[in-house]
Amino acid sequence: MTDASRIAEHMDVIASDGTKIGTVDHLDGPDKIKLAKTTSPDGQHHYIPLTWIDHVDAHVHLNKTSVAAKAGW
């Protein structure tokens, strides 16, 4: 399980293929991240479930490729 306390606003969210898919806006409830719409290609907010997170260091790293993540948000 991901330690949500390590996730901070403005962290890059990186897919498993190395592609940046967005920037953390904030945690939305206990189980998902809301991505900033300013970094979204379509100008919309998107949500990433915490179950998609592989690990958190200086960035949030997902266990999904960018294609899979975008298909699921």
Rank of each mutant, 00 (worst) to 15 (best):
D12R: 14
G72N: 08
D54Y: 04
K32G: 02
A4W: 03
D42N: 14
M11W: 05
H45I: 13
V24F: 10
H59V: 04
D25G: 06
K70L: 13
T51R: 14
T2W: 10
T65Y: 05
V60I: 03
G29R: 05
A36H: 08
N63H: 00
K34E: 15
K70I: 09
D31R: 08
S16Q: 01
A8K: 15
G29A: 00
D12W: 11
P30R: 11
A58S: 12
H55Q: 03
A36C: 07
P41Q: 04
I7F: 03
V24R: 07
I33T: 04
H45A: 12
S40N: 15
T2A: 14
A36E: 11
D25Y: 15
S40E: 04
T23L: 10
S16I: 01
A71N: 13
N63K: 08
P49H: 05
L27H: 04
V67D: 04
T39M: 10
E9I: 07
D57W: 04
N63S: 00
K34S: 05
A69Q: 00
E9Y: 12
P30I: 05
S16V: 03
V56W: 06
H61I: 03
H26R: 15
A69G: 03
Y47Q: 04
A15Q: 12
H10K: 12
A36I: 07
S5F: 09
M11S: 07
I53K: 08
I33K: 04
M1G: 15
G43N: 02
L50G: 06
I7V: 06
A58T: 13
S66F: 01
H10E: 06
Y47E: 02
W73F: 13
D3G: 08
A69S: 11
Y47L: 09
I48D: 01
P49C: 07
I21T: 11
T19W: 10
S5I: 00
H59K: 14
H26P: 00
L50M: 06
H61A: 01
T65K: 00
I53V: 13
L62E: 12
Q44S: 06
H61T: 02
S5V: 03
H59L: 00
A36T: 14
H59W: 07
H45K: 13
V56M: 11
L62T: 13
G72I: 02
S5M: 09
K64G: 00
